[in-house]
């Protein structure tokens, strides 16, 4: 996983609440057996016209000024619905590394951290301000700095955000958490040995 330190990039505003993972990456693209190549299908139903090929000029990411956006700004409950990790894979493949919203759905939020994407929760009034300012100023850039846990606007307004220390560490260092957990494999075996006595039915099922 690519570490996340500081990102200074154009921000694209998608003014919708409850953007679900079906909207981020529709089901027909979940048939892949790979993690890559999904960026072209990101927000497919909104991004393309009925022919599925022609860019919809009304959709934010198709507008020239947002072409190089690497930050998304959205309303509450971003990433609701399905657990598909294809959603962060598609965002990452497109080039999005950070999402700013008042709230995120739990599974999506968690999936972002496994893929080097930083989801940032900001209060509603700060998000409102971004939705007011971004459309007015072409090339509006935001700096998202993970070490200092701050978001900085073009006029140097600086907001801080909260993040769980363990998630922060993994994202800063791009850590493989399976490797970290396997370092605890003796503890896992001890746990299993204890449970085999306490709850043996968990270890001996019939059938299959």
């Amino acid at each position: 996983m690519e570490p996340f330190q500081t990102l200074d990039a154009v921000a694209a505003p998608i003014d919708r609440a409850n953007i679900d993972t079906d909207a981020i990456i529709p089901k027909q693209f979940l048939k892949t057996i790979k993690r890559t190549g999904l960026g072209v299908s990101l927000f497919y139903d909104w991004r393309y016209l009925a022919d599925g090929k022609t860019p919809n000029p009304d959709f934010v990411l198709n507008q020239d000024r947002y072409k190089n956006a690497r930050i998304l700004v959205a309303r509450q409950n971003f990433g609701s619905g399905s657990s598909r990790e294809h959603a962060p894979w598609a965002l990452l493949d497109y080039g999005i590394r950070s999402i700013l919203a008042p709230s995120f759905a739990d599974i999506f939020y968690n999936n972002c951290f496994k893929n080097g994407i930083l989801p940032v929760r900001l209060p509603e009034d700060q998000i409102d301000r971004l939705f007011r300012e971004i459309p007015k100023q072409s090339g509006y850039r935001i700096t998202v700095d993970l070490p200092s846990q701050t978001v900085t606007l073009p006029d140097q307004t600086r907001w801080s955000f909260d993040i769980d220390p363990f998630r922060k560490k993994c994202l800063l260092e791009g850590l493989d958490d399976i490797g970290l957990t396997l370092a605890l494999k003796d503890r896992i075996s001890e746990y299993e040995n204890r449970r085999k006595v306490e709850a043996p039915w968990l270890f001996s099922h019939h059938g299959a």
Partner: peptide, 21 residues
């Protein structure tokens, strides 16, 4: 019982555990 992403599916397959808050 809860849903997880594919990275966590791999984590559980490999370790039979998950890091959770």
């Amino acid at each position: 019982a809860f849903g997880i992403g594919t990275s966590e599916v791999e984590h559980v397959l490999a370790t039979q555990t998950l890091l959770q808050r």
